[in-house]
């Protein structure tokens, strides 16, 4: 394998890791407030459709991403209302989102383009290279010659890191996920924090979905998300509920995704379906080796009843 191939592989790894990273950060914000949301796949599917449609109509991928994110918020509000206000089971509602949102997306797509449509195509987001920095050998092309979404997500990792570890508000936020009753006694509005968490989660997961249709491929098709929401869930566990850990986990999973694509093009050793298994198998292996018995936020998954003693 030559030097340029390795460089290509890493660049594509960064590209594949970006949607995962958006969605994994979405889950991180959700779980830090005690809400396990397994509906990420569904939110992504809806975000990818909205992103695609807006991009198709306006020709503006940035507007597409923004609307995809807002679409994600909208869908996640169903989850927020049912799990926070009604204190329903989080897993069940996450699952309901996984069934509801892709169905809604596929329905809207068919209504817009007709039942038997030809493939509609939209414009892709262009890469913006940062002058001077992009000329650094190897690293320049890897880090500073990407779409703005890639820069945005790395900025977001840093912001998240600082927020959860260095700010009072971030610590309060974490308290809600650890022990909501104590947080409430300290004057933190638990219900409001949980709703904010759901808004952030929906926004970021919707963005991750929109990334797929505005930066990765220029069409929408059912099943485009392909389990990325669940891989992102695994990345949160693997990254031990910290922003930096999640970053590493997503880069690793992105690398395996890029690797299987590379191997499909480059070799005829194995049938392509077996190569496509690599990201899923690696997620399983990574979790088996490193993901054991780490609990994460203490109250995650549990409903919170404000009036209950």
């Amino acid at each position: 394998m030559s030097w340029s191939m390795i460089s290509d592989l890493l660049i594509s790894a960064v590209r594949m890791a970006t949607p995962l990273l958006f969605v994994a950060l979405a889950e991180l914000y959700s779980e830090r407030a005690g809400l396990v949301n397994i509906g990420l796949d569904g939110i992504m599917a809806f975000g990818s459709l909205v992103g695609f449609l807006v991009c198709y109509w306006t020709g503006n991928p940035f507007l597409g991403v923004l609307c995809g994110a807002l679409g994600g918020v909208l869908v996640n509000m169903v989850y927020a209302f049912c799990t926070v206000t009604l204190a329903g089971q989080q897993i069940v509602y996450g699952m309901a989102l996984n069934i509801f949102a892709p169905a809604l997306a596929s329905f809207i797509y068919r209504v817009v383009f007709g039942v038997s449509s030809t493939l509609a195509q939209a414009t892709l987001m262009k890469t913006i290279s940062i002058p001077v920095l992009k000329d650094i050998p190897f690293l320049g092309k890897l880090l500073f010659d990407q779409t703005p979404m890639v820069y945005a997500v790395y900025l977001l990792v840093i912001v998240t890191m600082v927020y959860f570890n260095r700010t009072k508000s971030g610590l309060n936020y974490k308290a809600v996920g650890e022990y909501p009753k104590a947080a409430e006694t300290m004057g933190i509005n638990v219900i409001r924090t949980k709703y904010i968490a759901c808004i952030i989660c929906g926004f970021l997961a919707g963005m991750g979905g929109a990334y797929l249709t505005t930066c990765y491929v220029n069409t929408y098709s059912d099943g485009i998300v392909a389990g990325r929401g669940f891989i992102a869930l695994a990345a949160v566990i693997f990254g031990r509920w910290s922003a930096s850990g999640v970053l590493l986990a997503c880069l690793l999973f992105g690398f395996f995704d890029a690797l299987q694509l590379r191997l499909q093009v480059g070799t005829n050793l194995l049938p392509y379906q077996l190569l496509q298994m690599i990201p899923y198998l690696m997620t399983l292996i990574a979790l088996t080796i490193f993901g054991s018995k780490i609990a994460g936020p203490k109250s995650k998954g549990k409903p919170y009843y404000r009036e209950e003693r």
Partner: peptide, 16 residues
Amino acid sequence: WRGLNEMITTIMFNYV
């Protein structure tokens, strides 16, 4: 054995 969340693992096994 490893305490892994069955929701993630079963989905991965579905794709496999």
